[in-house]
Amino acid sequence: MSYGVQVMTSTGQMSSDTLNTYGIVKILHCQTETGSATIPEFNSDVGFWHLVIGDSVFEQAVAWNNTTKSFVWIRDAAFGGRVHSSNFYVYFFRGVSA
């Protein structure tokens, strides 16, 4: 391997990019129906985010701008005026390659 590290484990030698393929770099707790947050350490070119709702069946419409590093959540227009979650988590996973 050209970059990273290799580690001898109890199951043999492993390289750093296989030890941990996607780590959680940020856990965002959203407590409003609409809002935004800046996550400078996240790069959607290599990572992804995962949304976990805790209080409602209605999910938000969400968007990520990789230039401004801005994460936005709004009511899903398909559900009109229905109540959306105001208690959900977004897990941002860091990828391993660009």
């Binding site: 050209s2 970059y3 990273g4 590290v5 750093s16 990019d17 030890l19 941990n20 780590g23 959680i24 770099v25 856990i27 790069n43 290599v46 860091r94 990828g95 391993v96 390659s97 660009a98």
Partner: peptide
């Protein structure tokens, strides 16, 4: 911190794994 060939952090001990 572990960087890949593009200078991007590939892994950090601050990351949480599952």
């Amino acid at each position: 911190q572990i960087f890949n060939s593009d200078g991007v952090i590939a892994a950090s001990s601050e990351d949480r794994v599952l």
